[in-house]
Structure formats: C-alpha cells, structure tokens
C-alpha cells in the first residue's frame, strides 16, 4: 500500500451544484506526492470545481477523497486544510491585508504562530519570492505579477505540502507569467511540494510531469504533456493549442524538414539556418 506516497487518491468522486447538472462524474485519480500535475480541459469541463474539491472548499456529493492517506471529511478537514495551499486567478480577490506584510502574515496569525516565528516566516518567504522590498506597499501600488507573487508567498508561508494553482497565471502578462512559471519550477525541483495546476498555458503544461484531461466532468486522458501536444484529437477535445515551437516543428515536418524540438526558439533558429545553408 505504502510503496509510493500519495498526495491524493480520489475514488468515484462526483459533484453537482444542482441535482440536474452533474459537473464531475465518477472521477478516479491517484496523484503521487511531489509530482506536478496539470488539469486541462475546455471552459466548463469541471477543472475549477475539481480544484475546489481537492482544496476542501467543496465537499463531494459522492465518493471519497484521501489527502496524504487521510479521508477528507467533516472531522479531518481542519487538520487537512492547512496542508493545502491555493492560489487563484485574480490576485485582487485574494488580497486581504492593507500591506504586503500584513497580507502574508494574515494566515499565520490565524494559526496563532508566535510573533517571532511569524516575522521570520514573512521575511523568509517574501525574500524567496523577491518581494522583500515591497513589504510596506499597499496592494494598489503593485503590478499584477507582484500581487500574484504576494499571493504565492502568503500561501507558501503556511508551509503546505500541496499547492493548487487555479489559472494563477492567466491574468498576468507574458513576462510575469514566465516568472510565475519559474517559481513553480523551483517549487517542483525542491521536491517539497505536490503541485496541481489548472492552466491553458502551453508552456506551463509542458513544464509539468503529467496532464490530466477533463471532458464533460470525466477524465478523458491521463498523459505526459508532450503526448498531449502531439495528439491533435486530444488537443481539440480539450480545446488547447500546442506551443508555437511544437506547431512549427510539425509544420516543418509536414514539408519534409525534420528538426529537434530543442530547448528554446534560439536552438530551433540555429538548426533552421544550418539546414538552409546545407543545400
């Protein structure tokens, strides 16, 4: 049983907001601790609802959810909930404090941490997210990317083992999105977090270990990100578009030019120049 540590195990989980409208239907899932899993699917496929169930914000109508081996229910939720951090789409809706410092401290106060430890954690996580210089700022003085960093710092300061990102990057500009992705990569590499992210962002999906495709309230596929992007049928069923680099490689391939996807667009460009001058 205990060969691999599971962050989550879902057994026949179903959920409906209204009896006549089933949102999630009989979901079975196992998520290994320390892995980075992306939930993908079209608008309205049940991704956010599943995230809320995983975060304990909603209770399933049927089935069981185990968090690190403990079944989530009325009794266990109080000690399971602190294990799970959530970062949402709109950082404005998540900002509670009047300053960055107060915002990061808010959750810790709720947990009645000694003052010294609170101060230390606020500083440590603010530094980690490179917002140490913003501690006295009001949220309105921050950019979208900075606000989202505050939200991540506030979440990580609670030291959860599981962090759920619900489209946390979708409101950010490309640069801030890249920066958030870097934070997620570092979290993943540290091995200390199970990451569940809901996203349509191709690069973010590509960075994760595993993609779970939701469709009409069920799991339509459970594949590696690269498999997902190579499977046109699957892509259109979850209404995704492959990243530019992957599409370019495919377009070239259909014209008889085979390239290695490489690490970045610079590598692709090098290869293309070599190819053209090889004639």
């Amino acid at each position: 049983m205990k060969d691999t540590v599971l962050a989550y195990e879902l057994q026949q989980v179903s959920f409906a907001y209204h009896p006549q409208q089933q949102i999630l239907d009989n979901i079975n899932l196992r998520i290994t601790a320390g892995s980075w899993v992306t939930l993908v699917g079209a608008n309205g496929s049940g991704k956010s609802t599943l995230a809320k169930l995983l975060g304990g914000l909603l209770a399933a109508n049927a089935g069981k959810i185990y968090v690190e081996g403990t079944e989530m229910n009325q009794e266990s939720i109080t000690h399971l909930r602190p294990r799970i951090g959530m970062v949402f789409q709109n950082p404005d809706n998540q900002f509670i404090g009047a300053t960055v410092e107060e915002d990061i401290a808010f959750g810790l106060e709720g947990r009645c941490l000694p003052r010294d430890e609170m101060v230390e954690r606020v500083k440590r996580y603010a530094d980690k997210l490179e917002i140490g210089h913003l501690l006295s700022k009001h949220p309105a003085e921050l950019s979208g990317g900075q606000k989202q960093r505050v939200a991540v710092a506030a979440t990580l300061a609670m030291e959860p083992g599981i962090v759920i990102f619900d489209e946390a990057s979708s409101m950010l500009d490309e640069k801030a999105r890249g920066e958030l992705q870097l934070i997620m990569r570092e979290m993943s590499e540290s091995g200390g977090y199970t990451i569940i992210s809901i996203t349509h962002d191709a690069e973010e999906i590509l960075a994760s270990d595993r993609a779970i495709v939701l469709k009409d309230g069920g799991v339509a596929a459970d594949v590696s990100p690269l498999e997902l992007f190579r499977n046109q049928e699957l892509l259109s069923s979850c209404r995704l578009i492959a990243p530019f680099r992957v599409r370019l490689i495919q377009e070239l391939s259909s014209r008889g030019i085979e390239l290695d996807p490489g690490q970045d667009i610079e590598e692709v460009s090098e290869q293309l120049c070599r190819y053209i001058s090889s004639k």
């Binding site: 370019l248 377009e251 070239l252 259909s254 053209i276």
Partner: peptide, 13 residues
C-alpha cells in the same frame, strides 16, 4: 505564423 515560417524555410531551401 508557424505555417508561414515553415513555408518560407522550405522555399528558401
């Protein structure tokens, strides 16, 4: 676009 670049590269070749 991915298509236009691929087309151009093929033509250059």
């Amino acid at each position: 676009s991915a298509e236009a670049i691929a087309e151009r590269v093929a033509a250059l070749y």
